[in-house]
């Protein structure tokens, strides 16, 4: 468990589907799984069984490095519910492998005041029910 993600409100979760199950459960094996075209190697996200680049239908989950960059972030101060501890950081993270794969996430395990656009981050997972939620934490440029 990390120290900074102290929202204490249970995460709301997506419904698992045939297409999104790999993404939301890969964390059980500590892997971030993203759909990728087996013909042209393009990452297709949200997970879909069609490659918009080469029109292949041979698209399936593959592990990625888990590294990414903060494309944008917001520090949430509003207490939307009783029991929600604020502030916390919501971010768009783009994958290192392909910058048009954009994930929503929380930035954790850091001082929220130090979070910056362009910062390099790495995935970690938090289990919630049947889902392993991908979260990201800053890494030094040397790691």
């Amino acid at each position: 468990m990390d120290d900074t993600d102290k929202t204490h409100a249970a995460r709301s979760l997506p419904f698992l589907t045939v297409d999104n199950r790999d993404f939301w459960t890969g964390g059980a094996n500590n892997r971030l799984l993203i759909f990728r075209c087996n013909s042209c190697a393009y990452y297709v996200h949200p997970p879909t069984t069609f490659c918009p680049r080469c029109e292949s239908r041979d698209v399936g989950a593959q592990p990625v490095s888990g590294f990414g960059t903060i494309f944008s972030f917001t520090m949430n101060y509003k207490k939307w519910f009783p029991g929600l501890d604020v502030p916390y950081i919501i971010a768009f993270v783009v994958l290192e492998e392909q910058d048009d794969v954009r994930l929503v996430s929380n930035i954790v395990d850091c001082n929220p005041d130090d979070v910056r656009i362009g910062q390099r981050v790495k995935v970690r997972f938090e289990q919630a029910s049947d889902i392993w939620v991908p979260l990201f934490a800053p890494v030094s440029d040397l790691s």
């Binding site: 979760l13 999104n20 949430n76 929600l84 916390y88």
Partner: peptide, 11 residues
Amino acid sequence: YDWFAPYHAYA
């Protein structure tokens, strides 16, 4: 909301 929901992105 499914891609936002787990991240306390409520509104």
